[in-house]
């Protein structure tokens, strides 16, 4: 019961309070990419959840080896990228073998979808905060859902911006960044302090 409570607490914390995009500013470029492709969002969020869960399970027993190393800033990301590579290869061959129709469409973006900042960030944050296994899995899933939540909120805002008389020099990336900054400000009010990384 305690584990279930801990899991959901970690998940909700990562989803709202310590949102990966608004509070930690991770995965913003990929988020802007997905706002233009809303149909891929669900597929990507599920993939992100699967990759962070499996990579978290594999990487958790191994990270203890490099925690106290002088080069942990380099070894921990290298470790997680190696784990993500294993997960990517497994996903690549499984989708190619069992879902060849999906592979045509999905295979091209699978690499970019697995190896990006949101995925690595979802693995590095629980590691740097030294969460246990349940916390790592819960936090990873919460971060994935939080990423999807951020994409929905920002894409909705960008749609609204089309009705505003945005000055010419602010159209496009400038106003999108300012909008994202103001949303982050709102979520900062919930946290109240800069989160450690």
């Amino acid at each position: 019961m305690t584990y279930i409570f801990q899991f959901f607490t970690m998940m909700l914390t990562a989803l709202f309070v310590e949102n990966i995009v608004f509070t930690r500013a991770i995965g913003t470029s990929w988020m802007f990419y997905l706002t233009k492709r809303p149909k891929e969002l669900l597929r990507y969020v599920l993939l992100l959840m699967a990759v962070t869960t499996v990579s978290g399970l594999i990487g958790y027993p191994l990270r203890g080896i490099v925690y106290n190393s002088e080069f942990r800033h380099v070894l921990i990301p290298l470790l997680y990228i190696a784990v993500m590579a294993i997960v990517y290869l497994a996903a690549y061959f499984l989708i190619k073998k069992f879902l060849p129709d999906q592979f045509e469409h999905f295979g091209m973006t699978l690499g970019a979808a697995v190896f990006n900042c949101a995925t690595l960030g979802s693995l590095l944050i629980p590691s740097s905060e030294r969460l246990d296994l349940i916390g790592t899995i819960g936090y990873g899933i919460g971060m994935s859902l939080g990423f999807g939540f951020a994409v929905i909120m920002v894409s909705y805002g960008l749609t609204r911006l089309e009705y505003c008389r945005v000055p010419k020099i602010f159209r496009g990336i400038p106003i999108a960044l300012i909008y994202l900054g103001l949303l982050s400000l709102a979520f900062y009010g919930l946290v109240g302090h800069q989160l450690p990384t």
């Binding site: 008389r165 602010f170 103001l182």
Partner: peptide, 22 residues
């Protein structure tokens, strides 16, 4: 930050006073 980039009066998406105060 809140009024001018979004287009001035009538186009702001956020309450300027709330954002300025925050």
């Amino acid at each position: 930050v809140v009024k001018l980039p979004f287009g001035g009066t009538g186009s702001n998406l956020f309450n300027p006073a709330a954002v300025g105060f925050a």
